[in-house]
Design a binder for these strands. Structure first.
Lengths: 245, 245
DNA sequence: GGCGATATAATTGTCAGACATTTAAAGGTC
DNA sequence: GACCTTTAAATGTCTGACAATTATATCGCC
């Protein structure tokens, strides 16, 4: 009930891409299996090589296949790595947010709801590495002279460590999109010395909660962080409205 | 610090796609803006039209552009819709799970952690429509003679309603991937009459919790559902191991 | 003048053929 | 056996052509 049968007939290259995509998803082609050569595919589908190539480029853009030149090269079904999936997810999420006028409130709410979801797991499973990363980023954020952009980047790194501490790669993958996609929105905020101090304090508290395996404390701290972030966001929006209005 | 500067030089078509992609992401091209024609692009980049076309197909595969034939047609920056983002996300998540031997436990944990994250919001904001959908699906699940596959599909529909009830499209988008991507894993489970009864009961309790605005009850019910689903999954895995071993 | 049919031009979609480049394997030399 | 060369298969790129589509402009008719 998706776009496959919807309305208008697609390009040949789109149809061919869909046929191969389906074969991969349905499991008819396994990871690292080699597709027929472009010449063979163009015979099979009864189209020119250029059309086949356009179809293959579509699949390559989704990381479904990889190509290799030379003898015994060709197109191979790609094992979708977490890394590839991450970057695709982040690109999509970022564009979705920027193109659909998603409010700061909505994005913020989604982000912190998901972070709270992984906090209990993070308390159970965080390693010394995760705690060290979070402490290092917290310290970095307390340095005077740090640009707003660097502060935000460090903020993302800290929250990323929190998410990773949950020890569940599927959860990490899903959340990374939300956290990283918010960075452009967060970058709009101008952090005063006072607000940085407040945030650094909450970050330290959050790390403490993880260290002492206190899910409730972590939850509470994340709630405070959400409220405070929302407040900062609202201030920026208000200032912006005054300027343009 | 991503794959852009990593290692090997990419194809020309990949480079050109990246250049245009960056222009869109950085906001240098706005939604519905028309790209130069293929002929103009091939002049600008100093490559042939085929190469440009391959680049454009890559972008089209990511829903970043759409193309229109005819006079005054061309390639236009596409507004990424929630629907497009959903289906991409689901495709990617499904493949990620199936290709990386993600365990049932891990996927299950991630799914329920995120569902619990949106339960409190769903209690606040659920509409009569959401409740009606959940009740209808619950009722459907109690019908004898329903195939395992249909039972799973209904299960997904119910959980999708829960997620949508949170009233946060960003949260819905992120969670839809996790929930729908799990369906192939869930489809492996053979539901006995007894287990269906148990699940239907929990679904009813969950809907009640939403109706009465009881976030704690919803949370508890979801926890029970997670434990029970895990149990069923483990049984299947154990049976499968006996058969193959 | 208005309106419908038609021509026009711009643009993407497809095809065919050629050549360049890359790469692994086979073969040859010492 | 180690190293170099050749070879063949495959993708990457270019060129030129034609088909299909579609918004706009033009023309003829009333």
């Amino acid at each position: 009930m998706k776009s496959s049968s919807d309305s208008k007939p697609q390009d040949l290259s789109a149809q061919i891409a869909q046929a191969i995509r389906d074969a991969i998803i349905e499991g008819h082609m396994i990871v690292d299996e080699r597709l027929p050569s472009e010449a063979e595919l163009s015979e099979q589908f009864g189209v020119s090589r250029s059309t086949v190539r356009e179809a293959l480029k579509r699949l390559a853009a989704q990381s479904l296949i990889r190509t290799q030149r030379g003898a015994f090269g060709g197109a191979f079904v790609n094992r979708l790595s977490y890394e590839d999936a991450y970057s695709q997810h982040i690109t999509t999420s970022t564009l979705l947010l920027s193109m659909n006028a998603v409010s700061f409130e909505t994005a913020c709410e989604a982000r912190f709801a998901m972070e709270r979801a992984c906090a209990p797991l993070a308390c159970q499973r965080r390693t010394p590495d995760h705690l060290a990363t979070m402490r290092a980023e917290t310290h970095r954020q307390s340095q005077p002279g740090l640009s707003d952009e660097s502060f935000c980047a460090s903020d993302v790194a800290l929250h990323r460590a929190l998410v990773d501490a949950s020890g569940n790669p599927v959860l990490s993958y899903q959340l990374a999109g939300a956290v990283e996609a918010m960075q452009p929105l967060m970058n709009m905020i101008t952090f005063t010395a006072r607000s940085r101090e407040e945030i650094v304090g909450l970050h330290a508290a959050l790390t403490d909660a993880l260290e002492t395996n206190s899910p409730d404390a972590a939850d509470q701290t994340l709630r405070q962080l959400e409220v405070y972030t929302l407040e900062l966001g609202r201030d920026v929006m208000a200032a912006r409205a005054r300027k343009s209005g």
